[in-house]
Write a protein that binds this DNA or RNA. Structure first.
Length: 256
DNA sequence: ATGCCTCAGCTCCTGAGA
C-alpha cells in the first residue's frame, strides 16, 4: 500500500498532471497542498472518474488542502482542533486503517517576522494536537509540505542558507519535537541518493542544477515503523513543461 | 540584487511563495 503527498501549487493548473500521475501511481492515499481553490471549484468528478474519493478544504488564492483515497475516508477533520486559524492548512481522516494527516505548514517568510511567529505558534498547536491523536490512533501518518529542512543534508547550499527560512534552529527544534512524539522520517529509514530534494526554485534553473531543499516529508508513527518498506521522492512530474515547484513523496507500507 | 520564476486576482502590477 502506498501513500503520497504533493504540493501542486494550484490545482487548477496542475489537475491534468495529478490525474496523469495517479494513473501511473495508483496510490491508496494522496494528500495535496496549495490548491489555491475554493471548495466549489474542486474537481470531484475528475477524481471520481479516476477512482478516488476526495475530501477537500479549500481557500481562495492561497493554501487549501485535499485528501484523495481509494476507499472512503471517515472522521474527517479540517485544520487543527484547539488552534484558531483562518487559513486552510490541514485535513485529516481515518482511511485504510490509519489516521492520515495532510498538512501545508506555514512558510514563515523570514525569521523575526509576524509570519515566522505565526509559523512557530502553528507548529506548537500542531504538536499538541498530534500528541493527542497518537494516543487515540497509534497508527498515524503525518505528511505534507513542512517548509522545514531536518538538517544540512536537506539543503543544496547549507552555507548560503544558514539561519535562513526553512533552515533555522527554531524551525528545526519544532520538527525535532514532532519526531520526539514518536514519529519517524520515512525517507531517512532507507538509503537515499545524495542531494535528494523535494522542492526546487523556479528561478535560475533550480531543478536542472539541483538547487533544492527537502521540505516535503512523510512522518510515520512508532506503531507503523515495522510496516514501512520504501520511501522515494518522485522527480518525474518536475520534468513537465509547467511543473509544480514541489515533487511528490511516496511511502510504501505493508498493510498494518 | 528589495532580482531571477510562477500563480492568483477587483489582472497590465502586486503579494506570496520558498
Amino acid at each position: 500500500m502506498k501513500l503520497a503527498t504533493w504540493n501542486v501549487n494550484s490545482l487548477t493548473v496542475r489537475l491534468p498532471q495529478v490525474l496523469e500521475w495517479l494513473a501511473v501511481n495508483p496510490v491508496e492515499v494522496l494528500v495535496l497542498q496549495e490548491l489555491k481553490m475554493v471548495d466549489d471549484k474542486f474537481p470531484f468528478d475528475a477524481f471520481r472518474q479516476a477512482g478516488y474519493h476526495a475530501q477537500c478544504f479549500g481557500q481562495k488564492t492561497y493554501n487549501g488542502v485535499a485528501l484523495l483515497s481509494r476507499t472512503p475516508a471517515t472522521e474527517v477533520v479540517k485544520n487543527i482542533p484547539g488552534f484558531s486559524d483562518d487559513m486552510a492548512r490541514v485535513i485529516s481522516a481515518n482511511v485504510a486503517g490509519l489516521r492520515v494527516i495532510g498538512a501545508y505548514f506555514p512558510n514563515g517568510q523570514e525569521p523575526g517576522s509576524d509570519k515566522f511567529d505565526y509559523k512557530m505558534n502553528w507548529l506548537k498547536g500542531l504538536r499538541d494536537w498530534v500528541r493527542e491523536e497518537l494516543v487515540k490512533t497509534p497508527k498515524l501518518v503525518l505528511m505534507g509540505d513542512y517548509n522545514i529542512t531536518f538538517d544540512d543534508t536537506d539543503v543544496w547550499d547549507p552555507v548560503g542558507m544558514k539561519d535562513q527560512i526553512h533552515c533555522t534552529d527554531e524551525e528545526r527544534y519544532h520538527l525535532g519535537a514532532l519526531i520526539a512524539l514518536g514519529l519517524h522520517d520515512a525517507f531517512r529509514l532507507f538509503e537515499q541518493p545524495e542531494k535528494s530534494y523535494s522542492w526546487w526554485d523556479y528561478r535560475d534553473f533550480g531543478f536542472r542544477r539541483n538547487h533544492g531543499l527537502r521540505i516535503d516529508h512523510i512522518l510515520i508513527s512508532d506503531a507503523l515503523k515495522p510496516c514501512v518498506t520504501h520511501c522515494v521522492i518522485d522527480k518525474a512530474p518536475r520534468k513537465n513543461e509547467r511543473p509544480s515547484d514541489h515533487a511528490p513523496v511516496v511511502v510504501e507500507l505493508l498493510q498494518p
